[in-house]
């Protein structure tokens, strides 16, 4: 399969988006006390799989196409996703201290959910910004 720049970008958007959705689902499930299939390791595996897929797509495309797929527009989108997800993470952890303070949820649960939802914010914002303008 000829891995063009557009295909590398499509793999990146799809894998980041999928990993983000898995993190979001598991973060929300953790907060609501529901059990999702696959166990708590699944978000980690999804993140590592996304990284592996992007690496493989870039490797298949070759150095020149990989560089074109990660050009200055992408780097700007990635920086913007990091900036915005930083504020999302601050808001999340600040908000989650309230139910912890009132003994509504344990601190470990809040920490786990906050981490998963922060990861989801970064991955999903990255996929959305990467997709915009295409």
């Amino acid at each position: 399969m000829d891995m063009t720049v557009d295909k590398i970008v499509t793999v990146r958007i799809a894998s980041m988006g999928a990993a983000g959705l898995i993190c979001l689902a598991y973060g929300l499930a953790l907060l609501s006390g529901e059990r999702l299939p696959g166990g708590t390791w699944l978000p980690g595996v999804a993140g590592l799989s996304a990284a592996a897929l992007v690496f493989l797509a870039s490797w298949a495309g070759g150095r020149q196409r990989a560089r074109a797929a990660a050009d200055e527009t992408y780097r700007q989108d990635w920086r913007r996703a990091q900036q915005h997800s930083y504020w999302v993470a601050l808001a999340l952890f600040s908000t989650l201290t309230i139910p912890v303070a009132f003994d509504m949820i344990p601190g470990a649960m809040a920490l786990g959910a906050g981490g998963l939802l922060s990861a989801a914010a970064l991955l999903l914002l990255s996929a959305i910004y990467d997709f915009r303008g295409r």
Binding site: E72, Y74, R134
Partner: peptide, 14 residues
């Protein structure tokens, strides 16, 4: 043009 310049099509478009 994107291929010649070594960027993605999105970059040229934007």
């Amino acid at each position: 043009l994107a291929e010649r310049v070594g960027v993605s099509r999105k970059t040229v478009n934007t």
